[in-house]
Design a protein around this nucleic acid. Structure first.
Lengths: 157, 157
DNA sequence: TGCGAAGGGTTCGAATTTGAACAATCGGTA
DNA sequence: TACCGATTGTTCAAATTCGAACCCTTCGCA
């Protein structure tokens, strides 16, 4: 209940700066290779992995952990670029699906190899398989708990 | 060299979303408890931990992994609020030190308990000590490599 | 001494992000 | 059926972030 130990503080700091540095690198790589931001790549990647290549705005917003309005903005950008299209749900007029277009898929595959290589080079290859496993398990659990505490319908991990 | 395995992909995704969710929560907590953003808290915390409670702009920018101009903006805000002051280095007129003021220190201590509690609740207590140790070591190493690849003078971790 | 390259911060405009309204719709319940 | 609260996504203004251009200073070297 008291202050964090040095070890504990270091773990959190390491998490924070690792993500920050990775994010920075990925942003550069993706802008260069595919002309999109890291956030846009994540959005397209989520859509590509989803059934029918489409997701509700809310799920998507929750999955990439941005605000609702932020997602509206980004989907607007992606729609203008032709990488995504909007479709309203027949059974619920309020609901909007973001759908990955063919062009979106091909743009995604333009950035994917470099992105994967970066993840490998800067994270996967730095850790032992055991460390990687612990990382996935431990942080995965932390995620589940935080998401359970909210009402994020969409599942991810 | 090929695509990432499911396990590898999950590790990276877990890292990303864990940070995103933690960041979000901390932003809320710090705004509520101390009227500042998570980024501002990090800046003040770095200063508090530094000798003489001061750091060069560049070191600080690198440490919190924002851009130079972004830091200029934030230090400007913090200076207006009286939490930080600027001081130029006598031996090098170009260099600027950001210095934590007394008021900055007390504001920091206003947010610190809640911040620590959050780190503990959402991260530390979710993991076993062993997992935490692996996390700190593994990610710490990843950090060192990325920073070594750049010219970030400031050390942190 | 004098020159050119590099370093350190700031400034500026454009892009993005946020949070607080807002309008529209759905669900359950009387 | 009619109503009230909860959901969904958007809009809007303000705050923040980014990158490139810029100015001034320092350093290495002829």
């Amino acid at each position: 209940m008291g202050r964090l130990s040095t070890e504990e503080h270091r773990a959190w700091t390491a998490l924070r700066t690792t993500y920050a540095l990775l994010h920075q690198r990925m942003d550069q790589q993706l802008k260069r290779d595919a002309g999109m931001s890291h956030l846009q790549y994540e959005i397209l990647a989520r859509l590509a992995a989803a059934p029918e290549r489409e997701l509700r705005m809310t799920s998507l917003a929750c999955a990439v952990a941005g605000s609702k309005s932020g997602l509206t903005y980004q989907i607007g950008q992606l729609e203008q670029s032709g990488l995504v299209s909007r479709r309203t749900c027949p059974s619920d007029v309020r609901a909007v699906y973001a759908v990955l277009t063919e062009e979106g898929a091909s743009r995604l595959s333009l950035g994917a190899p470099g992105h994967g290589a970066l993840v490998r080079e800067l994270l996967v290859d730095v850790l032992t398989p055991e460390q990687l496993r612990v990382l996935a398990e431990g942080l995965g659990e932390a995620n589940r708990r935080m998401q359970a505490a909210e009402d994020c319908g969409g599942s991810f991990g």
